[in-house]
Design a protein around this nucleic acid. Sequence first.
DNA 1: AATCTTTATCGTAATATTGCAATATAAAAA
DNA 2: TTTTTATATTGCAATATTACGATAAAGATT
Lengths: 110, 110
Amino acid sequence: MGITKTEIFTKQQNETALLMKALGHPARIAIVEYLLSVNACICGDIVNELALAQPTVSQHLKELKNAGIIKGNISGNAICYCIDETAIDTLRVYFGGISDNLEKKKKMCC
Amino acid sequence: MGITKTEIFTKQQNETALLMKALGHPARIAIVEYLLSVNACICGDIVNELALAQPTVSQHLKELKNAGIIKGNISGNAICYCIDETAIDTLRVYFGGISDNLEKKKKMCC
DNA sequence: AATCTTTATCGTAATATTGCAATATAAAAA
DNA sequence: TTTTTATATTGCAATATTACGATAAAGATT
């Protein structure tokens, strides 16, 4: 049907999936990496950096913002986007936890 | 168009995005968490665990397997799925790296 | 004020995803 | 061998995503 049955999963599972989904596109990975590479939080030259049209980049930025992965400050008529540490931390902790858990049960698996 | 322009991104960016995309659905998060919670690598009672039809679960398992997040061993007529540590490690390192990087440039951002 | 610059939104076409019933496959059990 | 059990595949309907041209909105510049 193309519609996700969110109601049968926990709030945490849905939220985790939303975070991951937001990073489940190479353009959005590239945007995050670009934001990380510049020493200040540069805004719209992301469009120049990526071979994508401006509306497309804007849409990807919106999704990253909705997921809480980036945040934007208005500065004049431009907008300064940057990575939101909280989301990255959540992901770091999540995968760290799985990794630790797997370490413990080593050799109990395939 | 619904089609991702993979050719304009690096191989690494595409691969990272594929890993994240595979985890960008609550059912697949739930599957990974279930696999982690059982002390052996249980197979098809994932269907009983989730309120989804068997073909739907099978499809999600296939996507996780394609992305390299889980692996499956045939054992009789059943299949034993379990988490592939490599993928989790890749992601742990990836977000660990971003986190470290952000730590360094603290206060240079919004 | 008129224009430029920057970003967002709308509308739309092409394609992908989600979910399931029906069916296929293949090993195990009877 | 027939039946059961476990899983995968096919086909399809409903919905979501990706991408972009056209346009809007709003501050900056002239």
